[in-house]
Simulated scan of single mutants.
Amino acid sequence: MANPAHDTEGVARGGPTGTGQPARPSSFVEQVLAELRKVVQPTRQELITYTIVVLVFVAAVMGYVFGLDQIFRWLMGVVFAS
């Protein structure tokens, strides 16, 4: 089992030490920098692909919500027609 007191880069976590003292701000900064070192930038092709996937998904959800809106509009017209 991994040691829960350190992250994968070996930077000590600044969690409570049992003394009731808050974590040090410098420990937080060390952890943030360790996480940023793990970030992998997408290639241009990956970025284009992910952008297209997101736009298609958003368009599909918009179409779905628009369709539901039209159905409910029609249904309310039928129910409350005078």
Rank of each mutant, 00 (worst) to 15 (best):
T19R: 15
T19F: 15
T19A: 15
T19G: 15
T19N: 14
Q21Y: 02
P22M: 09
P22K: 11
A23C: 04
A23Y: 00
R24W: 03
R24S: 10
R24Y: 02
P25E: 06
P25R: 12
P25L: 06
S27K: 01
F28S: 05
V29W: 04
V29P: 00
V29K: 07
E30H: 05
V32T: 03
A34P: 02
E35L: 13
E35F: 11
L36S: 13
L36K: 15
L36I: 14
L36R: 15
R37G: 11
R37P: 08
K38H: 12
Q41E: 12
P42D: 07
T43M: 00
Q45W: 00
Q45H: 04
E46I: 00
L47A: 13
T49K: 14
Y50I: 02
Y50W: 14
T51D: 12
T51Y: 08
I52D: 13
V53K: 13
V54T: 09
V56E: 10
F57R: 14
F57V: 09
F57H: 11
V58F: 06
A59W: 06
A60N: 08
V61K: 11
V61W: 05
V61N: 11
M62T: 05
M62A: 14
Y64N: 05
Y64H: 05
Y64F: 14
V65N: 06
F66P: 00
G67P: 01
G67E: 03
G67Y: 09
L68G: 10
D69A: 12
Q70L: 07
Q70M: 06
I71K: 07
F72S: 06
F72R: 07
R73Y: 01
W74C: 03
G77V: 00
V78T: 07
V79L: 11
F80I: 03
A81I: 02
